[in-house]
């Protein structure tokens, strides 16, 4: 490793620490969220430096992108005055209300809690560091995976691990996304995706930009999906891009959810998980194990499963946002200072 790379890595480490500290200590929750997004991007860079481009892509898409959107959207809800009634809004300056509710809490005892948390985190970090420096470079199962790559149906070892060798894990992880959406429904009530408010248009320029970006996003998603066979990429990254396209279109005022019947929502949420399951069970019929793909068809099956999973992941990610932003404190409400003018559509 040359000195330049050393310097780069040191800088990146420092940057990550500073960003994490800033995210924790920022006066305003908005600042915290922005620092957190920056931290996610820094982490993505760190993964690149660790020669893990697959993780870097996922970190950038999910850790910085999707989480950032959800955090900022949640903050819109929190920063409205409690009760959200027109009276409260008129009596208080919106800026005041925002600072009152959206800054990090300063209640008594917070200091002690913070000290305790800091001490615990420092202790954990110390223990982890001492443990990690003692671990030799075992190499993991890399060689094993490379040795079996031929029978996996794909050429990229990470995809082989995720979709074939340890497909069971990935299948359950797709289930985790499905469950997360069900959990949101439990907390907020099951209404499909319709019934909430549709957002207003954010103005001609942004609409135009988003209209141009959407096809590009879809195309990039397809490319990433296809690329997963032989290079970093795959269902999760592609899915998040599809979800991002949906989120942007919604922000641009397209009534995407208005035409979705509950049945279609259900199908969208379960398509990826269900496809996985169907192929898994089909493998049992000729006497194989669950999720055992015949070597000859493995590549095609993986592509099918990944496509279905990407669509489902994209749909679920979009559903998170669409559901949450159509409940309280939708973007449209934020723009209008007077409650009487909201949601005329």
């Amino acid at each position: 490793m040359n000195p330049l790379e050393h310097a780069l890595d040191t800088l990146l480490c420092l940057l990550l620490l500073v960003l994490a500290w800033k995210a924790l200590r920022a006066e305003h929750l908005y600042q915290s969220a922005i620092f957190f997004i920056a931290f996610g991007l820094g982490m993505a860079l760190a993964w690149v430096r660790l020669a893990a481009p697959d993780v870097a892509l996922a970190e950038a898409a999910i850790g910085a992108g999707l989480l950032g959107v959800l955090l900022l959207d949640s903050l819109r809800v929190f920063s409205r005055p409690p009760n959200g009634s027109g009276k409260a809004r008129q009596n208080t300056d919106p800026g005041d209300a925002e600072t009152a509710t959206a800054t990090t809490s300063r209640h008594p005892g917070a200091r002690a809690t913070r000290l305790l948390a800091t001490a615990a985190a420092a202790g954990l970090a110390a223990v982890l560091v001492t443990a990690i420096v003692r671990i030799g470079d075992g190499g993991g199962l890399t060689e094993e995976a490379a040795g079996q790559l031929e029978g996996s149906g794909v050429e990229h070892p990470v995809t082989a691990v995720l979709l074939n060798f340890r497909g069971y894990d990935t299948w359950l992880e797709v289930g985790v996304l499905f469950l997360a959406m069900l959990g949101i429904y439990c907390a907020g009530g099951w209404v499909g995706l319709t019934g909430g408010r549709e957002p207003d248009s954010p103005g001609p320029l942004l609409s135009w930009l988003i209209r141009g970006l959407t096809p590009l996003l879809i195309l990039t998603a397809a490319y990433l999906l296809w690329l997963g066979k032989e290079a970093p990429g795959g269902a999760f990254q592609a899915g998040v891009l599809i979800g991002a396209a949906g989120i942007l279109l919604r922000l641009a005022g397209y009534p995407l959810t208005a035409h979705l019947s509950p049945g279609m929502v259900k199908l969208g949420l379960t398509l990826g998980f269900g496809t996985f399951l169907v192929f898994g069970i089909a493998a049992l019929i000729p006497g194989g194990a669950f999720l055992e793909y015949p070597e000859y068809w493995a590549g095609e099956i993986i592509l099918l499963v990944e496509t279905a999973a990407a669509i489902s992941i994209g749909f679920t990610v979009f559903a998170f946002f669409a559901y949450l932003s159509s409940r309280d404190g939708s973007p449209s409400e934020e723009h209008n200072s007077k409650p009487s003018t909201t949601n005329s559509d």
Partner: peptide, 23 residues
Amino acid sequence: LFNLYVTIEVMGLAAVALAVLSG
């Protein structure tokens, strides 16, 4: 060991969702 982590995650999420079912 890692698959156990995944099952723990699935279990935890499903359990929390059930716990708030009443809303």
